[in-house]
Amino acid sequence: MNIIGCLDRPTSGDYSINGTNVAGMTKNELAALRNNTIGFVFQGFNLLSKTTALENVELPLLYQRKGRRKDARELALASLQAVGLAQRVHHEPTQLSGGQQQRIAIARALVNNPKLLLADEPTGNLDSLTSIEIMAIFQQLNDRGITIVLVTHETDIAAYAKRLIEMKDGRIIKDEPIAIRKSAVGRVEKTAPTA
């Protein structure tokens, strides 16, 4: 997962992104790639503490090479709106629930309009109901054309994907498309209408 996210470089083998081999890239090029092409969602949320939701979501925009975007605030707001947190923009992570924190993390990952979204056990720290909410957001994003790579131990979470790759001890043991994707959107409306 770290290699896919360009946080780490492979010690053996090759990994190409957009046709470029990562091995030949400088640290700064990798940083730019993380900034523009890839969005991250972690199991532990990894939000800056004592920092409002809005500022957290703004963070990737502050590190853009082209200079500070004038519309950083609006983009961050739009991104928070997309995950349904428009009412919580000035709250700090500690004032929010796990699900809300994870949605901030998703908003942060989305704010730069990435092509690829990496989610490392995003539901690992959440209860099952919140997990479904998060999965609903992922499914909506996927429907908008963003590639999502999600790592999970839970088979019922995996059921929301379109393609399932099963790994054991570092090797792929199964790789098959899922014929009928389980929809999380409908389930949220049924089980948690107020969310």
């Binding site: 946080l7 993380r34 900034n35 991250f40 590190y63 942060r108």
Partner: peptide, 10 residues
């Protein structure tokens, strides 16, 4: 780490 992950350079 978080800053680096979202694309900050050294």
């Amino acid at each position: 780490g978080i800053r680096l992950a979202v694309g900050a350079r050294g």
